[in-house]
């Protein structure tokens, strides 16, 4: 058990190290996000309603998540398949990928949030609650798209990812939009926690499904 946890830790570190060494991918994603928000800023001429803010925010997040998570298994499936398969079990691999992607998605969500706040001013009243929403929502997004990125890596075709992912992500997106609304209005504590609970439930379901189903996709 401890050994496996260690292996997962090293896989995550390897991932981070590789990402850091090849900075161009990270930098291009950053620029993508910043560019997108800047375009929105110009399109709205600096003034925005809260509802549009929510929609724009999550659309930008969704599209950058697809680009970030979509190439998760590019290397593993094509060049290092036999090497990786000999070293670690599929469960360890998917665990490391899920953790790493959740972190990465959360990081980019934060960047979009900060950007949008700089451009449009403070839109969210309860920002600590919103950060929690961002964190849990990011986990859900990364769980879902990480699994599907295996499929697109096999197909060598990233265009399929939105086709597969968008209809399935809809429940998650509806919940996240609702939570964003809640973080901006006065509601009692119970109401807030019930919705967080639903979010947690969805995260758990996608997490368990990813772990159960990944070995089938990984084996040849």
């Amino acid at each position: 058990m401890l050994e496996q946890a260690n292996r997962v830790k090293y896989l995550i570190l390897k991932e981070a190290y590789l990402e850091w060494r090849n900075k161009s991918v990270l930098a291009s994603m950053l620029l993508y996000v910043i560019g997108a928000t800047f375009i929105v800023y110009y399109a709205f001429e600096g003034r925005i309603e809260f509802q549009s803010w929510t929609a724009i925010f999550w659309v930008i997040v969704l599209f950058s998540v697809i680009n970030i998570v979509g190439k998760t298994f590019e290397k593993e499936v094509n060049q290092q398949y036999y090497y990786i398969r000999g070293l670690v079990s599929p469960i360890e691999l998917i665990l490391s990928k899920l953790f790493y992607n959740a972190f990465l998605v959360f990081f980019f969500e934060l960047i979009v949030y900060v950007e949008m706040t700089i451009f449009f001013g403070i839109q969210i009243q309860d920002s600590s609650y919103f950060l929690l929403v961002l964190f849990l929502g990011g986990i859900g997004f990364s769980n879902l798209f990480t699994l599907f990125s295996t499929i697109t890596a096999r197909l060598n075709n990233i265009v399929v990812l939105p086709v597969l992912g968008f209809p399935i992500i809809l429940p998650l997106l509806i919940l996240v939009l609702r939570l964003t609304n809640i973080s901006n209005i006065e509601v009692d504590f119970d109401e807030k926690m019930i919705n967080i609970g639903a979010m947690l439930l969805l995260d758990t379901i996608t997490f368990i499904l990813s772990i159960i189903l990944f070995p089938y996709l990984w084996s040849e």
């Binding site: 699994l147 599907f148 499929i151 096999r154 597969l164 209809p167 399935i168 809809l170 429940p171 509806i174 919940l175 609702r178 019930i194 919705n195 639903a198 439930l201 969805l202 379901i205 996608t206 499904l209 189903l213 089938y216 996709l217």
Partner: peptide, 28 residues
């Protein structure tokens, strides 16, 4: 490969679909 991948996809899809029609309407 077609059978395997689409099988995984449909399992995932069905579970999310159940979540969609059972949980989301309750919450919203």
């Amino acid at each position: 490969m077609k059978a395997k991948f689409s099988g995984v996809y449909s399992i995932f899809a069905f579970v999310m679909f159940m979540v969609f029609i059972n949980i989301i309407p309750r919450v919203s």
